Simulated assay, not measured.
Amino acid sequence: MVKQIKKDNMRTTIVIFTDHKVPVSEIPNYKKYKFLCNYDLVKQYDMIEDPRYCPQMMVVGFDPSTKRRQKGLVLKDIYITRINGKCINQPIGLINGSIPETYHNLNKREAITEESRTIKVTLEQARE
């Protein structure tokens, strides 16, 4: 059965890149990466696969934040096709791991913010 995705299911997933499960004691030795995740079936220590990345990833934590921009970085949505080696059905409403209207609305807001930064120049700066 394919689940209907709800907009409030998004959270930040923290992963490490590895091709095997890593003992919990060794996790601090790995660099951690954050992705926005719309998959509520992912659990801590699952091995997940996104066809855009190699090797696999191990989920090491979650953050309830749904902000696309965190600490100056713009997070990408993760597109999970396998969990622990098993193919998963994509929840209804997701396209490559993203909820289309949410993704576009966030990008529009970021574009407006970027645009307002680039057009703020003084008259002196414009003359140069």
Rank of each mutant, 00 (worst) to 15 (best):
I83C: 03
R127F: 09
Y79L: 07
T102V: 10
K31N: 05
K76L: 05
D63Q: 04
M1G: 12
R127N: 11
R68P: 00
R127H: 06
Y39L: 05
I5F: 01
M58F: 06
Q70V: 14
Q90M: 11
Q125I: 11
D63V: 10
T118P: 13
I112F: 04
T13P: 00
K34S: 15
I92D: 15
E110S: 08
L41V: 09
S98N: 09
I88C: 03
V15T: 02
S116A: 02
I83N: 12
L94E: 08
K43M: 11
N107R: 05
Q125L: 14
Y45G: 10
K32N: 05
V15P: 00
Y33F: 13
V74N: 13
G72W: 00
I119A: 08
T122A: 00
L106Y: 14
E26K: 02
E101L: 11
E49S: 11
I88H: 12
D8N: 04
L41D: 09
C54P: 00
T18Q: 08
S65A: 07
K108N: 08
N107K: 15
L41G: 07
E26N: 11
R69A: 06
I78Q: 01
K6R: 03
C54G: 12
R117C: 15
Y45M: 07
V15C: 09
N96W: 10
I14V: 09
S98Q: 14
D19R: 10
R109H: 03
I48Y: 02
N105Q: 14
I48R: 00
E49D: 15
N38L: 06
R11G: 04
R82F: 04
E114N: 11
I112V: 06
R68I: 14
I83Q: 03
G97P: 04
M58I: 06
H104W: 05
N107W: 06
R11D: 10
Y45R: 09
K7T: 14
G72K: 02
K108Y: 06
L123I: 08
K21L: 15
I112G: 11
I48D: 00
T18S: 15
I48F: 01
P64S: 14
D63G: 05
E115H: 10
K67S: 12
Y103A: 13
V121N: 09
R109S: 13
E101G: 03
R52Y: 08
L75E: 05
P23T: 02
E124K: 11
Y33H: 15
K3G: 07
M47F: 11
Y45D: 09
I5Y: 03
L106P: 00
R82S: 04
P91N: 12
G93Q: 10
R109G: 06
F17K: 06
S65M: 03
D77W: 06
S98P: 10
H104L: 12
T18L: 02
D8V: 11
A111W: 03
L41R: 08
T66Y: 07
G85E: 01
Y53F: 09
V24D: 13
T122D: 04
S25P: 02
V74G: 02
I27Q: 09
N89P: 11
G85L: 01
Y30P: 09
D50C: 02
Y39P: 06
Q44D: 13
I83Y: 02
K108L: 15
D77I: 00
K86Q: 12
Y30N: 13
M47H: 05
M10N: 10
